[in-house]
Design a protein around this nucleic acid. Structure first.
Lengths: 122, 122
DNA sequence: TTACATAGTATCAAAAAAGGAACTATTAGG
DNA sequence: CCTAATAGTTCCTTTTTTGATACTATGTAA
């Protein structure tokens, strides 16, 4: 743990605020994994998301310079979303989260199921 | 980005869910930085938190095996909170978040203030 | 006996986030 | 003229999260 880390003016919170929420991490992950996706392709990838929520969060992520939005002048409309170069800097963080999460699932298993038979040597 | 990473059964979300929220990261950070703290010491470290929120989140973090709670049988009461060994495994993640957050603050600066004078060589 | 300190609970109110359903613009094709 | 496709927007409701304030238990010390 960084010793200059200060829980008040807090960069950890700054970081979290850019991509937490019910949908943002999933949207970002999909763009990491699939590259460029159209609006409806994202919807298919995230079946439970409502159109409204998808639009709102895409707009916010765009504001934050994490994703870019490219509109093609055609009908029916075509809009493509992808990570910006800056958005891609979240990659290592996503990996770290992924790994900790994976380990956490294992930890949950060991917590839920205590040994049925006590080890006689303990 | 991990190629086996799958936005559906998603470990990133699993990880985030264990410590996101308005107060949890700050509580954890304080325990990382200060080690063991009593209830009221935590309150002083986090001036804006309401007693209720502190209690609720401490209980949740304890449930999750991220922190431990030690009650001393004395009056007035004394209750100490600290990270569990498992809680300490969040350290590298906190550091990664801290670093990305720090960089993000710089990025925000460069976004907010576009050059007043265009570089004639660009 | 009264006040004090610590670590809480209990209740109700407010605010923030998310959900649901319906509606829109555009144009190509039949 | 009607329909279909895409990427939205509008309006309203529900759920979730926080906030605000007051109240409690208990032993010690004045």
């Amino acid at each position: 743990m960084k010793n200059e880390m200060n829980p008040h003016q807090c960069q950890v919170v700054t970081a979290l605020n850019t991509f937490v929420g019910k949908w943002k991490p999933i949207i970002l992950l999909n763009l990491f994994v699939n590259g460029t996706l159209r609006f409806n392709e994202l919807r298919k990838q995230i079946p439970d998301i409502k159109q409204r929520m998808l639009t709102l969060h895409l707009r916010e992520l765009e504001e934050q310079d994490l994703i870019k939005r490219v509109v093609y002048a055609q009908v029916p409309p075509k809009v493509e979303y992808s990570l910006t170069e800056y958005g891609k800097t979240l990659g290592p963080l996503m990996n770290a989260l992924h790994e900790w999460g994976e380990n956490h699932l294992k930890h949950l298993e060991t917590m839920k199921s205590p040994p049925l038979i006590k080890d006689p040597n303990s």
